[in-house]
Simulated scan of single mutants.
Amino acid sequence: MTAQGKNQRIKINLDLSPEVYETLNNLAQQINGDNAEVLLKAIALLEIAVEAKQKGKHIWIADDDQNLETEITGI
């Protein structure tokens, strides 16, 4: 992809429930970003999770001592 292609944007419209829209806005505030940044990061995280699952790996949340607390399933 050319440098010009990387900067291109496509505008989409989404129909979200009020609850999902509120969550999107809250996440944007928490990361000091905007709604587009939240969606881009969410897509990147889902892409990583799907690739890991396809390779037979698992996604976990660990505490500061690297103790596994929660497995992310359903992806």
Rank of each mutant, 00 (worst) to 15 (best):
Val38Lys: 05
Ile10Val: 15
Pro18Phe: 03
Val38Trp: 04
Gly5Glu: 13
Leu27Gln: 12
Ala3Phe: 00
Thr2Cys: 00
Glu71His: 01
Ala28Thr: 12
Val20Leu: 12
Lys41Asp: 12
Trp60Asn: 07
Lys57Trp: 02
Lys57Met: 10
Thr70Tyr: 05
Glu37Phe: 05
Ile61Glu: 07
Glu47Val: 03
Gln66Met: 14
Asp64Cys: 05
Pro18Ala: 15
Ile72Val: 15
Leu27Asn: 09
Leu46Cys: 04
Ala49Thr: 09
Glu71Asp: 03
Ile43His: 06
Asn35Trp: 00
Thr23Phe: 01
Glu37Gly: 11
Asn67Asp: 12
Lys6Pro: 00
Glu22Leu: 04
Asp65Lys: 13
Lys53His: 10
Lys6Gly: 05
Glu71Arg: 10
Ala42Lys: 06
Asp64Met: 08
Asp65Asn: 14
Asn32Thr: 10
Ile12Asn: 10
Asp64Tyr: 08
Glu22Ala: 08
Glu47Asn: 13
Glu71Val: 03
Ala44Asn: 12
Leu40Gly: 05
Lys57Gly: 04
Leu45Thr: 11
Ala52Lys: 13
Ala28His: 07
Gln66Lys: 14
Leu14Thr: 02
Lys6Cys: 02
Thr2Tyr: 01
Ser17Glu: 14
Leu27Asp: 07
Val20Ile: 08
Gln4Tyr: 00
Ser17Gly: 14
Ala44Met: 09
Val38Asp: 06
Asn35Arg: 14
Val20Cys: 02
Asn25Ile: 09
Gln30His: 15
Ile31Asn: 10
Leu39Glu: 09
